[in-house]
Write a protein that binds this DNA or RNA. Structure first.
Length: 872
RNA sequence: GGGGAAGUGGCGAAAUGGCAGACGCACAGGCCUUAGGAGCCUGGGGAGGCAACUCCGUGAGGGUUCGAAUCCCUCCUUCCCCA
């Protein structure tokens, strides 16, 4: 799958588009200056000290604080990063996850966004028409908490934060197309969030039901299953342990898409995310089997191992199971009721813990095992959950750990029905769930595990005892939130017509501004005196509004579409924009959203497709995740630990380009790692040296002793090898080695600047390619150097350099000579040396002969261009 | 308990079957300088040796291979997800 998409990306990089990308640049060129040599262009720039500050020192120094705001202003004024529909050019929709406007852009945002920006810039230089939008996921709890704590209105707090963060985002020098900015809390945005809700409702994909849901007592709201984290089930936002509440809540039927969500065909997503989502969906194949009580009450169970049915020696009903009270015999009633009352007070997680001492009570009733007519006792026990499967299980102690522990505790029989290989017929010491052969199972005896499930399922179906069934762990998405700062759910409750969606022409259902916050835990919308009073859209009689708002993940499930046309008011997006830009070609962001946002947005696109609103099966074709950037102490950054790195301070001190370059340099992007305040000085040094390489005059004396011809070839080889390497690494998101390769090339160029090669066209070619390659990573200094070289504005509209395979080829190589796999000698040989000659040279080597000590080689291994290994 | 990822100098890392440690940080020595917290040059995996050189070395152990940081098996440690 991954290779398929990769190949596609490569193929769709047509040479012709590189020329197309150059066109606008040519238009804006005032005076195309063909710099004949670096020396010459240096002189030109020396005469025009345009951007340079007046210092006592007349030297032209790299001062990022001067050049960065200057270029940012010019780029914005020129709408340099404006992305417009242009069917004559191949499009590339690059998207990075939009931030929540918390009020402070942290280094994690920089780490997510600036490499994404560099990649988008690279694609632009590759000839694509690139759209790289930005916006704000502006609804959510922190705004409301600020309102309660500090008395600031959530809207005021949010929009002030957005204003501040816009400025911070601009300091990155990213190629965001700000004309496409979307803010999810704008009425023009949430009008469509509500419209989508209504569409889902009309298509039966949104429904309300009473159910035990997770409730965060601190944030006073329900949470989706995905927003409850960890073993002890804490709120994803505030870390408070959640409790169960029985409430009428709105859900989206994401479970309708369980099967399709497992299919990633055609997308290039990391294996890790696919695995997380696959496990989250939790498909399990098995069979539903119906047992009956002695009084003919059907009790259906789901099992992944119908082949173990003959080993069922008891049944367990969840304490909440409706049959528990019905089937309990009078003499057991008191005991069972006490147990049920106790069990329902426990949390699911306590109840399910595998290592916990099992508890349960016999309810005084029996069931008949449909496969062998065995009369087996029915128990109720808290390790069976009502919310899981059918709320009832068959107990097969020999082949299930928990059933085994239960049977041991209550002295129930443990008959083996799957014989492990080499089983001696003795009782098992622990539950066995490996491969084996069916035993004690009537006609099925001897059936190996590999065929058993299918055969038994077929047999059950033929006899009407059960049927094959696939179940999923995935639950429907709970989207009701009992809070104010979110998109109101556009539903009206009419005494006659029930839940009625607000008609499209009455959207948006606006949030009222005049609300009060009381720490009662009630939604302010519920406390508002008039807001919820309305009339029924169908009959016009008095009716009330739904006061719950939507989970903010609903807003972010479709934002990639709103960027297409954030001002469009005839629909959620302009179809012309849609048909050109969608789907998203490359999506970047944190992996922490694997089972939340990233699964919701896939569901959303699939649901829209089935409602014929979009044509795509998947919203984002390629996904890449960055790692987490840690504090200098290798701990997670947090204010309480005092290890937070503030990007604003870094920009002020080192400039945005250095921060960008360091974030890309210090580690593999998807790996993250600790910040190092000394490490960034290395890239600062790099940028200073690049500056000097290009701006400062070369030394007067040219080294006449070196042969110019070989120097030119060496220079071009290094340059073209670097272009090849950097291009490949950009394609693969390997940003750290890009910066390393550029540093390496600089080291080589700095040495060569001392030689006469500096007066050759090869030098100009080198410097030209160098600045182009820097441009995606350090856009400001690249633009400044480009201008100083007298090249036409803007570097960011230039094509990416192409490497010349012939120039990059080595003519001499180091041939490694090994004896028995150990390096013993090295020879400089022509790269195109023939195998026979290489072997001869190896055997002729004095060192090799010494290690052979007269023995005849058994084998001589030759690896072209690399080594000869002589084996004795 | 299940699944996944990772483990390489003092540190961040590079090398994905073929010269281990590219690039950078820190450190050491030198140059330049009135000065250096600037810049430039040089050196740094470990052990032995004046040296050429030798041996050892990618969490541990085993295996495959002419050849393994890289592939396979077992184990240890750390992190993530699920239970």
């Amino acid at each position: 799958m991954a290779t398929k998409t990769k190949a596609k990306t490569k193929k769709s990089t047509p040479k012709t588009t590189a020329t197309a990308a150059r066109k606008p640049a040519a238009k804006t060129t005032r005076k195309p200056v063909a710099a004949k040599s670096a020396r010459k262009s240096t002189r030109v720039s020396a005469k025009t000290p345009s951007s340079q500050p007046a210092t006592h020192n007349s030297r032209d120094r790299y001062i990022p604080q001067k050049i960065e705001p200057k270029w940012q202003k010019k780029w914005a004024a020129d709408r340099l990063y404006r992305a417009e529909v242009d069917p004559s050019r191949p499009k590339f929709y690059a998207l990075t996850m939009l931030p929540y406007p918390s009020g402070e852009l942290h280094i994690g945002h920089w780490y997510a966004m600036t490499p994404s920006d560099a990649r988008a810039r690279f694609m632009r230089m590759q000839g694509f028409n690139v759209m790289f939008p930005m916006g704000f996921d502006a609804f959510g709890l922190p705004a409301e908490n600020a309102a309660i704590q500090r008395g600031i209105h959530p809207k005021k707090w949010t929009y002030a934060n957005i204003e501040r963060m816009r400025q911070q985002l601009r300091s990155m020098g990213a190629m965001f197309d700000w004309e496409r900015e979307a803010v999810s809390a704008d009425p023009e945005y949430y009008r469509w969030t509500q419209w989508f809700f209504a569409q889902l409702f009309k298509h039966g994909l949104a429904y309300k039901k009473m159910s035990p849901v997770d409730w965060c007592p601190k944030d006073n709201t329900t949470l989706a299953r995905e927003q409850v984290w960890g073993e002890d089930r804490r709120c994803e936002r505030c870390g408070t342990p959640v409790i169960k509440k029985n409430l009428a809540q709105w859900f989206f039927k994401i479970t309708d898409y369980a099967e399709e969500l497992l299919d990633f065909d055609g997308t290039d997503w990391p294996e890790r995310v696919r695995l997380l989502q696959t496990n989250w969906v939790g498909r399990s194949e098995g069979a539903e089997v119906t047992f009956h009580s002695e009084h003919e009450d059907p009790i259906t169970v789901f099992t992944t191992r119908p082949d173990t049915l003959w080993g069922a020696t008891f049944m367990v009903l969840a304490p909440e199971h409706p049959l528990v009270l019905k089937l309990t015999s009078p003499d057991r009633k008191a005991e069972v009721e006490t147990y049920v009352a106790e069990a329902t007070r426990q949390s699911d997680i306590q109840r399910e813990a595998a290592d916990r001492e099992k508890s349960g009570v016999f309810i005084g009733a029996y069931a008949i095992n449909p496969v062998n007519g065995a009369r087996i006792p029915i128990w109720t026990a808290d390790y069976v959950l009502m919310t899981y499967g059918t709320g009832a299980i068959m107990g097969v102690p020999a082949h299930d750990e928990r059933d085994f522990a239960f049977a041991r505790k209550f002295s129930l029989p443990i008959p083996v029905v799957i014989a492990p290989p080499g089983w001696d017929g003795h009782p098992l010491k622990e539950a066995y769930h490996g491969e084996g052969v069916m035993v004690n199972s009537g006609a099925f005896d001897g059936t190996p595990t590999s065929e058993a499930v299918a055969k038994v399922t077929k047999w059950l179906e033929e006899r009407g005892l059960g049927k094959g069934k696939v179940t999923y762990r995935l639950r429907d998405w709970l989207i009701s939130r009992q809070r104010y700062w979110g998109a109101p759910i556009p539903i009206v409750y009419c005494p006659t017509h029930g839940a009625v969606p607000v008609p499209d022409d009455q959207l948006p259902v606006l949030l009222p501004d005049d609300v009060e916050w009381k720490p009662t835990g009630e939604s302010p919308l519920k406390l508002h005196p008039t807001w919820s009073k309305t009339t029924c859209p169908i009959c016009g009689e008095p009716a009330t509004r739904e006061t719950d708002t939507m989970d903010t993940f609903m807003c972010s499930s479709w934002y990639q579409y709103r960027y297409l046309s954030p001002d469009y008011d005839k629909g959620p997006w302009d179809p012309k924009e849609y048909s050109y830009w969608m789907p998203v070609d490359c999506y970047t962001g944190g992996i922490e959203h694997a089972t939340m946002h990233l699964i919701y947005t896939r569901f959303f696109t699939k649901a829209l497709r089935d409602m014929r609103i979009v044509r795509d099966d998947e919203p984002m074709m390629q996904l890449r995740n960055q790692g987490i950037i840690l504090g200098e102490d290798s701990d997670k950054m947090s204010k309480s630990k005092g290890n937070v790195v503030a990007p604003d301070d870094l920009v002020k001190h080192y400039g945005a380009d250095a921060v960008r370059a360091y974030l890309m340099f210090f580690s593999q992007w998807d790996q993250g790692g600790p910040w190092n305040s000394k490490g960034i000085e290395g890239v600062v040094r790099w940028l200073n040296r690049v500056w000097k390489l290009i701006v400062e005059k070369p030394p007067k004396r040219a080294n006449v002793e070196t042969s110019e011809r070989s120097n030119v070839a060496d220079l071009r080889r290094k340059v073209h090898q670097t272009v090849r390497r950097v291009t490949r690494d950009f394609e693969n998101f390997e940003f750290n080695t890009i910066v390393a390769a550029l540093m390496e090339l600089l080291n080589a160029l700095a040495k060569m600047k001392e030689t006469s090669v500096v007066n050759t066209p090869a030098w100009d070619e080198a410097v030209d390619a160098y600045v182009r390659m820097m441009a995606p990573i350090t856009p400001h200094v690249a633009e400044e150097l480009w201008a100083k070289m007298g090249k036409p504005y803007s570097i960011h509209q230039q094509p990416w350099p192409k490497h010349d395979e012939a120039a990059a080829a080595e003519d001499m190589i180091t041939l490694v000579l090994q004896v028995n796999g150990k390096v013993r000698d090295r020879l400089q040989v022509p790269a195109d040396i023939a195998e026979a000659e290489a072997k001869d040279k190896a055997l002729a080597s004095e060192t090799v002969r010494r290690y052979l000590s007269g023995k005849t080689p058994k084998q001589v291994v030759y690896v072209a261009g690399r080594l000869v290994n002589v084996v004795v």
